[in-house]
């Protein structure tokens, strides 16, 4: 039972990651209002305090694309092929709804605190 031997720091880290994991799709969708390829998207998110590793970001991008929320395109830039992502029209709509939901959650939590 690994839960029994978790120290408080580990427990906090696990809960922190769980909390951030839930917010990542929203952060990715919001950042992709501007077109990015994977590496610049990761840097943009990290610059805003939402660092995400490549092993998490790329599968998430694929899932969001499969759901029709993103569109992607391979293009050459600086003599290298890169896959550029941006929000699809459906993604824009969902992002708007999610932002409303996010603000509502934030307000509710502020009330509870």
């Amino acid at each position: 039972m690994s839960h029994g031997i978790e120290n408080p720091d580990q427990r906090f880290e696990n809960l922190r990651q769980e909390l951030r994991r839930g917010s990542l799709p929203l952060a990715v969708l919001a950042a992709l209002r501007t077109e990015h390829y994977g590496y610049t998207l990761r840097k943009t998110l990290a610059d805003h305090g939402m660092a995400i590793d490549e092993g998490t970001l790329y599968p998430l991008l694929r899932r969001l694309e499969a759901q029709g929320l993103l569109v992607s395109q391979w293009r050459e830039e600086d003599k290298r092929n890169k896959r550029f992502y941006r929000l699809s029209p459906n993604g824009k709509l969902i992002l708007k709804q999610l932002l409303v939901e996010w603000k509502s959650i934030h307000t509710s939590l502020e009330d509870i605190f």
Binding site: Y37, G38, Y39, R83
Partner: peptide, 13 residues
């Protein structure tokens, strides 16, 4: 497809 994308990220880093 996945390897091309991951490769691009690692090489950029």
């Amino acid at each position: 497809d996945i390897i091309a994308e991951l490769s691009e990220d690692l090489r950029s880093q």
